[in-house]
Design a protein around this nucleic acid. Structure first.
Length: 110
DNA sequence: AAGGTGACCGGCC
DNA sequence: TGGCCGGCCACCT
């Protein structure tokens, strides 16, 4: 097992996502300095299954679409988790995405 | 070692 | 927002 790879970096940011907030892969990628490489963030989330404190359900694509819901257990677990946090989700899409949007670039950039 | 894949993004129509 | 396309880079086979 490697320590401190690109993934860990992503997880670290993901863990900083506050309750009831969501962000996009691109936002995280940008924060990591990998602007345009949002795919890597997606890959990292794919492996996030091994981690435990990684709220991957709070990470969606820029459209607010639950792109990764398919990777969660069941078929609507991701949605359930989000709704549980007070985020309205319908048709695999977050309502008022901008309203719940949380940009690490701004929030963590104190 | 080379190529394919991917939970994406931004620009354009 | 929707569809299509090119770009981006780590990981896997």
């Amino acid at each position: 097992m490697k320590e401190e790879n690109f993934f860990q970096r992503v997880y670290q940011v993901a863990r900083q996502i506050p309750y009831g907030k969501v962000t996009s892969y691109g936002a995280i990628a940008r924060f990591l300095g990998a602007t345009g490489s949002a795919r890597m963030v997606g890959w990292a989330m794919n492996a996030s299954h091994n981690m435990e404190d990684v709220p991957a359900h709070r990470v969606v694509n820029r459209k607010g679409l639950l792109s990764g819901k398919h990777h969660f257990e069941g078929t609507n677990l991701m949605q359930q988790l989000l709704e549980n946090e007070g985020i309205e989700v319908e048709e695999n899409q977050i309502i008022d995405f901008e309203k719940h949007f949380w940009d690490p670039m701004i929030e963590l950039n104190s």
